[in-house]
Nucleic acid binder design. Structure first.
Lengths: 199, 199
DNA sequence: GCGAAAATTGTGGAAATCCGCAATGCGCCG
DNA sequence: CGGCGCATTGCGGATTTCCACAATTTTCGC
């Protein structure tokens, strides 16, 4: 799944002209004649953005959007519609849609939005990768190591930690060193920054 | 300026009925017949949320919204409109409007949204107060103290910091202690967490 | 039951931190 | 000029951290 715009619309002509427009601007595309077709191919690892028609035979655009959100799809979604109304647009945007565009649209503006969406997706993926590696490191920690980490992050001295966990200071030192190692960090300050906001 | 809903609409009847509805639900209100009237009274310290009509004589709702954004107003804005179109709604929400509701609206839903907006505003104010006190403490720091702080946050040992700043270790220790004191923290870890994300 | 991983503890020394006490030099403001 | 805030430094001791070397106990799955 290389990064590309996923075009979902039951009107062949629109899909084709949209694909032509985007590809002429250097944006790779994949077309799907229905929401179901897209869902069948979709994987969490899919990259890019989605251009989604509102009204389609079978599952509607908003319905597909809801399903994708539930399944953890983080691709930016640009709704395209010829018959959208205000409540629909408001609902879509509040649920996190990237944009909501009425047909007929301005070609240049749409291409710009698609490019922005692709950029956003790329950034989100980088952030997600970081988050994944972080939680991977976190889950490699032992229960004890995690407990020690909590207290370290609370700014407590090893002596106090030993006291609270009812273990010797030496043990705390060992756990501390091990968890620093696993988390890829050299000081408590780095650890605090690594987990800033998280946890 | 006690927390309240600020109603801005050039239609007296709508303002009055809206005020009646909200106050009957325990939400204090203030009414303004025009954007200009509101602007004349507005202060950055204003609390609450804004119910803003789109089409008004003089400055329009979106125009007022833009001005308020520029001036740093953080009150949630709920747009109310009888003649809104999709692009207008999309633009408003993308600029950060809290909601965009078409007239006629459902009374209960609107009240709910207003209550949510007021809650959001209260939370934002708490966060802003924290941020203010933080930046106040930060600006009470000496140049040297700030420099030392940066290096402490970089996880460096006093010895290294002394080296980089070309001063003695003892001096670093003094600055470190002073800045911890000013920032109201007891350990480097607490400092790192306090500034998590910031700076 | 056996073996690996995890948890635990000790000893001891080098290095770093934390702090009170004391003092000097500099620049600015009234 | 005198006081004040800031930066600077030294000394010395109590406390803590960091680690290498070494070892015992617990836990848990096959």
């Amino acid at each position: 799944m290389t990064p590309c715009a996923h075009l979902i619309d039951d009107d062949d002509a629109i899909r084709d002209s949209l694909a032509w427009l985007l590809e002429s601007c250097g944006v790779a595309c994949r077309s799907y004649p229905s929401a179901e077709d897209f869902l069948a191919e979709w994987l969490p690892s899919c990259t890019g953005c989605i251009l989604l028609d509102i009204r389609m035979g079978g599952m509607s655009g908003p319905e597909l959007f809801d399903v994708l959100c539930e399944r953890g799809c983080r691709m930016p979604v640009i709704f395209l519609t010829g018959h959208g109304d205000v409540p629909m647009a408001v609902a879509a945007l509040k649920k996190g849609a990237f944009d909501f565009v009425e047909k007929p649209f301005n070609d240049n503006e749409l291409v710009d939005r698609v490019v922005e969406a692709l950029k956003l997706d790329a950034n989100q993926r980088l952030a997600a990768a970081d988050a994944d590696s972080l939680s991977a490191r976190l889950s490699s920690l032992t229960t004890r190591e995690r407990e020690v980490m909590e207290l370290v992050l609370a700014g407590k001295l090893n002596k106090l930690i030993a006291d609270e966990l009812q273990i010797s200071m030496r043990t705390v030192e060992v756990h501390r060193a091990n968890l620093f190692d696993k988390m890829g960090v050299r000081t408590a300050v780095e650890l605090a920054q690594l987990l800033a906001g998280k946890r």
